[in-house]
Simulated assay, not measured.
Amino acid sequence: MIRFRLLGSVGVCRDSGDGAAVAGTRRRALLAMLLLNAGNDVTFGSLAEAVWPEGEPPRSVNALQAQITRLRRYLAERLDGRQLIETRGFGYRIVLRPGDLDLERFEHLRRAARQRAGSDPGGALDLLRTALALWQGPALADIRDHSATLHAAAVQAEENRMLAIEELIDLNFRLGRHGRIIGDLKRLAAEYPMRERLYGRLIIALGKTGRRAEAAQYFRRTHEQMVDELGISPSSELNQVLADILADPQG
């Protein structure tokens, strides 16, 4: 089965993993806009803004139609002639089967994990791991800065990924696996130094495993970074997390 990828470079791949990024920046931008709105009509204007953010060319409707024709030919060569892009009244629409798009599968698995979390945290944890494994790099990695619309979509997808990671951490906490994820928390805190919630979880995990001095050290480091880089102090919530850890004789 052919699948479409937005969680990394924009591409077309098979279940086996074979595939490649779509060639051509404008073609990638056009495909990405259709995929981000899969099943819905996308107007000429919206597509043109994403493909030519610097300004539409003369006879932009004809130019867009030519881009669509090339994209249809490109996809047909990889889909045994199957056509996915429909012409609509004032634009186009791509029609996919369930599971064809990695972003859609990610969101589906994340919703399923939330529904299961209350009764089966272990099962929810497995679903989130499967969802996060779909990511092959930053969302829309090779075109995220091509237009404001695509950049905003990439930023939103990345935020949802971080929320899924935090949900996975919380499920590990519920299962008492604080020590098992300290290494991952340190890596994530270093990668996202201004994401205070990650530091809060790291401090909790260190405290729960008896490493209260190290928890205090990470708090001081977070405080210094936030003051130096943002000019603000950690929130009262993070201060309370540390206070609770230091006050708990059981760690």
Score class of each variant (00 low, 15 high):
I2Y: 08
R3Y: 15
F4V: 08
L6I: 02
C13K: 03
D15A: 13
A23T: 13
L34H: 01
N37I: 06
N37G: 08
A38I: 06
G39Q: 10
N40S: 15
N40R: 15
N40A: 15
D41Q: 14
S46C: 12
L47H: 03
A48E: 04
G55D: 03
P58L: 13
L64H: 01
I68N: 02
R70W: 02
L71W: 09
L84V: 12
T87A: 12
V95E: 06
V95I: 13
L96H: 13
P98M: 07
L101T: 04
D102A: 02
L109N: 01
R111M: 05
A113M: 00
R114T: 07
Q115G: 06
G118P: 06
G123V: 05
L134Q: 05
A139G: 05
A141S: 15
A141M: 11
A148T: 14
T149W: 05
Q156E: 14
A157M: 13
E158L: 07
E158Q: 09
L171S: 01
R177K: 14
I181W: 06
I181C: 01
A189H: 06
E191A: 15
R195L: 06
E196A: 11
E196F: 06
G200K: 05
A216H: 02
F219P: 00
R220G: 04
T222C: 14
H223D: 13
E224I: 08
V227T: 12
L230K: 14
V241I: 03
A243S: 11
D244Q: 10
L246Q: 12
Q250E: 14
G251E: 02
